[in-house]
Structure formats: C-alpha cells, structure tokens
Design a binder for these strands. Sequence first.
DNA 1: CTTGGAATGTCAACAAGGCTGACGTATGTT
DNA 2: AACATACGTCAGCCTTGTTGACATTCCAAG
Lengths: 161, 161
Amino acid sequence: MDGHDGEKLLFLTDEQLRRGIEAMFFAYRGFTSDPDRILEEFGYGRAHHRALHFINRSPGTTVNNLLAVLGVTKQSLNRVLRTLVEDGMVDARVGQRDRRERHLHLTADGRSLERKLAQAQQTRMRAAYRAAGPEAVSGFRLVLEAMMDPEIRRHFKSLKD
Amino acid sequence: MDGHDGEKLLFLTDEQLRRGIEAMFFAYRGFTSDPDRILEEFGYGRAHHRALHFINRSPGTTVNNLLAVLGVTKQSLNRVLRTLVEDGMVDARVGQRDRRERHLHLTADGRSLERKLAQAQQTRMRAAYRAAGPEAVSGFRLVLEAMMDPEIRRHFKSLKD
DNA sequence: CTTGGAATGTCAACAAGGCTGACGTATGTT
DNA sequence: AACATACGTCAGCCTTGTTGACATTCCAAG
C-alpha cells in the first residue's frame, strides 16, 4: 500500500529527479551570489558569512557550538574567526561560568555587516517567495527540511521561529 | 496594491526569511553529502560530479558549453576534465563540423559512476519529496526556479523535461 | 590537591578547487 | 594573410577544507 500509494501520488521519473537536482544546484548558486559580492569588498569568503550568520543567530554561542552547527574543524573555523575578531567584527568573551569557553558576539560593525549580507540574501529570497506564491513557500520549506540530515533537522527545528 | 497584496499573501518577517536561508544551507549540505561519500572513494570532488552530471545531461556538449553552465574558468574545468579523461570516465571527441571543438561523452565507466552518484542523490530527494508530499514538491521547484539568476533560469527552462 | 579530560588556541603541512594572466596551437572565418 | 575562436597548459595565488601535534587553561572527580 505504502509503495503503491506513493507512486500514485508522486510519480517521479529519473528525469524529474535530475531536474530537481539541477534546480538545487542552480538555485544555490543564485542564493549565494549576492552575499558573495559584498563579502569580496571586505576580503571575506562564505565561511565568514556563515560564522557571522550563526553568531548573530545565537549570540553568546561557544566555539564548540558553532563548530557543530557549521560542521567544520576547529582549525578551519579558527582561521575565519580570528580574522573576524582582529577586524573588530566579532567579540570573543571569556565565559563567566566556564572560563575555557569563548562566548561569541557580534560587535556593532559585525552586526552592520551581517545585516548587509542578510538583506542582500533576503531580498532575493523574498522575491522568489513572491514569485512562487505562499503555498509554494510552505512546500519549499517542507522539502528542504526533509532533505536535511536527521540530526541537523532536529537542531533546525529546535531553533526558535 | 502590489506591495500591500504581497504583504497580505505572504507575511514574511526578517526571522522567517532567516529561517529560509538557514534551511537552504542545511538542506544543501544534506543534498551533497551522499554523493560526496562516493566521490571520496574515487578520489574525486564535487567538481567532478558536476562535470559528470552535465556531460550526461547533454551528451556531446562542448567544453565552452560546459564552462558556461558550470560558471567556472576553463583552467578550473580543465583540471577536472583532464583527470576524468585520463581515468577513462569521459571521452573528448574532436568535432566533425568544427575540429577545434571537443565533444564530451561519458564512457561506460563514466556512465556507471554518474548513475551511482545520481542514484544516491535521487534517493534522498525522493525520500524528501515523499515526506513533504506532492504539493510541496511543485512549490519547492517553483521557489528554486525563482531563486536562480534570470539567465540561468532561462537556460534551465529551455532544457527538455 | 592532584590529576584527567574538556575546551580552546595555534603551528605546520597539505589538498581541492576556485581565480588571474600569459602563451601556444589548431582551426575557422573574413 | 589576418584575425578570431576553441582549447589546453603553465605558473602562481587565494579560500577553505583536512590531519596531526602540542600548549594552555580550567572544571570536576577522586
């Protein structure tokens, strides 16, 4: 029943799935292109953007938390984080309770850059949402969630809306 | 009217847009993770996957065509293409009409690897489509299309379904 | 109080895969 | 004959990922 029903509801040829895969590829390129242009002006890359985004999203987060979310090694993150701290975009405060931890916050400059990047990306996303319509948006979100690794999906869902 | 209607249909807070942005990031990571594992066994990277995908998609395509679709420099593509040809995954045939052109085809081995990669990715996408439901799928596709750069979107739509 | 382990930082080396710039070689086109 | 196009290639640079090794700091358990 399950298999048959699914086939009926969702008849997916190899070709259709390939189209979806290509769409993901092209859309992601569009999705990153606007912030990329801004980052270039600052001599930053996407890794910097991601750090800024998630620090803004969870102010006071620790390096280890950030590591888990970003899914990179501490050496890789550290390189990026160091430049951001040096450039006065990020503030790394020694933890009160546990002084080994560094709690990360955006500075005024960091917030300003993050907003600039977010707005560029949001502009494209808002336009896409509008063009596609409100029903498409919830479908879009549902499929994206279903495409995440389960562990990440749990993390994603646990974040405040 | 336009602005007001849009707002009514689609009330998008900064937070909601940020959620969409994060969803894109996490979903794309899931989306690439399965093929990544296979590629690693072959000593290949995502660049090889993309080349295999689009050569399979448009057999006989030229290097210049591929360059345009992938949006990279010829030096970057050449590095990847050379290893694929050396490894017997891709066949670069001199053009009949214009002998400056190289027409790219997958070999039997290339097709085999491409299928393996595609199936891994399709499995995840099919599961996501099923979990999200058929209406979600068309919404997903609509938003992705709307998120592409216009030039790419035209190209994308022009491809056979 | 000592010690183990966790959290963090840092150094070094390496690889993939982008980029630019320059140059060479066929091959077409005018 | 001259110019343009398609492709390859060499050299060098950058970002961002990796592993491995090691130091520091400091909480917490024994």
